[in-house]
Amino acid sequence: MTTHPDADRSALGARLRELRTDAGLTGKDVAARLRWQRSRVSRLETGKQTPTPTDLDQWAAAAGEPDTAAGLKSRLRGIRSQQRAWRRQLASGHRGVQERYVAEYRRTSALRGYEATVVPGLFQTPDYAHHLLLANADLMGTPRDTEAAVRARVKRQEVLYEPDKTFRVLLWEGALHALVCPREVMAGQLDRLINLIGMPSVSFGVVPLGAPMRITPRHGFWIFDEERVVVETINTELRLESADDLALYGRVWDRLSESALHGAAARRLLGRTRAALG
């Protein structure tokens, strides 16, 4: 998983420099062959500038190694995975981020997700969402536009009722016991999850405590249309688009799904948890 674009860009630059020197070329030679400024060659080799796919095709050809272009562009796709700091995104409050997700979910036909610590936003009740968003605003020191953000988050759930969409979601059982809100709010949230089971567009599974597992849960992630993965950390949102990352997270989801309870078994687990709240 690419989490340090600067380091990856520097590594790609080093590879470009290696191709140049192996071909017996100076930076000035490459600049002349490609009709570039010499400073451009330097910025690419030092990782101060991100090349375009065309740049890489031209560089490989200039070095007499056109077959290396595919590998160079694979590295570039990894660099282009986006890393967005939450503090910057939330500078004006949570509402804008939630509205962006509304649009993104509307564009998505198939979604696979896993959450380890909280009920996914796609399934949250307004009261549960309110407590989470308020706590996050306090943690990040960002504006409290909680009510507007809750409305936007709940609006995202309209996609659950749209035809030709599928949502396959897994949840670690520990999230059902985390009282991030008053007990009566959590009870309502569990009722909501119970009612989701059986919806035509939703496949909801719970990975129970004590289940045999081929892989241990680490963090939540979402796979949109098998094209990109979104990972949320405490301070950063990562968007990964390389084929390797997609394949890796797909395998993780599949292995977690093998350990999950679905259908009636998941409903019974949720019911027991709900009853324990009183």
Rank of each mutant, 00 (worst) to 15 (best):
Q83Y: 10
H177I: 08
G47Y: 11
S242F: 05
R87W: 07
R107W: 01
Q82G: 11
Q83V: 08
Q37A: 12
G96M: 06
L238H: 13
A211W: 11
A91M: 03
E147F: 05
L25R: 15
I223K: 00
Q89V: 07
R84A: 09
R20Y: 02
L269E: 15
Q83L: 07
D55K: 09
L170Q: 09
E99C: 12
G198S: 09
A243R: 08
T146I: 14
R106V: 10
T21D: 00
R35L: 10
S259L: 14
T117P: 01
W222Q: 15
P208F: 09
A23G: 04
R17M: 07
V229T: 11
E258K: 13
N136H: 05
N136M: 03
A275M: 00
D6E: 15
T166P: 02
Q58S: 13
V185F: 00
G278S: 09
F224M: 07
R183L: 09
V119I: 06
V207Q: 14
I215H: 14
L238M: 11
E65Y: 03
L171E: 08
R20P: 04
R15W: 04
F224I: 03
L90R: 04
G210M: 08
K155W: 05
G24C: 07
V119M: 00
P208M: 06
A187D: 11
P120M: 02
K48Y: 02
A14Y: 04
L44D: 15
A175D: 07
V230E: 15
F224P: 01
R9L: 15
S74Q: 10
I194F: 10
D191F: 05
D29H: 10
R106G: 13
L56N: 10
R255M: 14
W253T: 00
W172M: 08
V97H: 06
V30G: 12
V169N: 07
K155F: 06
R268M: 04
V119R: 00
P163N: 08
E258H: 14
A152C: 11
L179F: 01
A62H: 03
F123S: 02
R274W: 04
A152R: 10
R17Y: 03
L261V: 04
L209V: 14
L176V: 02
H262F: 15
R272F: 03
I194M: 13
H4G: 04
Q157D: 05
T3D: 14
L34Q: 03
A116K: 08
F167C: 00
D245R: 01
D67Q: 05
T46N: 09
R214L: 14
Q124A: 03
L133P: 05
E184K: 06
Q189I: 01
A11P: 07
T68A: 13
S74H: 09
I194Q: 13
R88K: 09
L190Y: 05
G64Y: 03
V30C: 11
A61Q: 14
D127G: 01
T108K: 06
